[in-house]
Structure formats: C-alpha cells, structure tokens
C-alpha cells in the first residue's frame, strides 16, 4: 500500500466492506477445521507441521483485516513487527540459554 493512499484514508477513513470481512471469517473457520482435522487424522509431525503453517496465517488474516493493519499507515505495521522482533529475541536468547546448560 502506498503512503499517499494510506494518508488519504487517515482523513477519510476506510470502511472495509462487510462482504470481505465475512470472507475472512469463512477462511478463518476453514483454516481452524484444517488444523484440527490434521491434528486428529495425522497426530505427530504432520499435524504439528500443519498447525505451524496455518496458525500464523490465521493470525495474519486477523491482524490485516479484522484489526485493519492492511489499511493503516505503514508505521503501524512496522510497530507491530518491532514488538514481534522483541518477542523473537527474548525467545531466542531463552532457548540459547537452556540449550547450553
């Protein structure tokens, strides 16, 4: 999304069409079914693998559409990525610590 586009929306706020949000909701429900189905039918590696791919995808749909990040100024997405980076660093350091004890 371009800056100019986002700026224009800051003044004339963007209303996401209801139909699109319903589509996002259907996608989220289907993705949940896929994760649950995979974990029941293929417990173990496959089930975990599916969950590890699908769960972040669900999170992205919620953030971008329900939480509007796709339509906000880029600074909001950068702020979010910064928070995620902090979490990743904390997680990385913790695991580094535990794996070298």
């Amino acid at each position: 999304m371009h800056d100019a586009h986002a700026t224009a929306h800051a003044e004339h706020e963007h209303i996401v069409p209801d139909g699109l949000q319903v589509l996002i909701w259907i996608s989220l429900m289907l993705l949940t079914l896929i994760t649950a189905g995979a974990s029941i039918l293929f417990p173990g590696r496959v089930g975990i693998g599916v969950a590890m791919v699908v769960t972040p995808l669900k999170a992205a749909l919620i953030l971008m559409f329900f939480m509007h990040l796709k339509y906000e100024k880029p600074v909001f997405r950068w702020m979010f990525l910064t928070a995620m980076a902090i979490l990743a660093v904390v997680m990385g350091l913790t695991f580094f610590d535990y794996s070298h004890r």
Binding site: T35, S39, A51, A59
Partner: peptide, 21 residues
C-alpha cells in the same frame, strides 16, 4: 474492537499449543 481481536488472536495460538499438537 482492536482489543477484542487481540483476545481472539491469543486464543488462536492457545488452541494448537494446548489442545491440538
């Protein structure tokens, strides 16, 4: 709404960690 979606988002991660995998 933003707060509520975050509550939803946290649950999206709790589901696989505790119930599924």
């Amino acid at each position: 709404g933003l707060y509520w979606h975050l509550v939803d988002l946290v649950w999206v991660f709790l589901l696989p960690l505790f119930y599924l995998t």
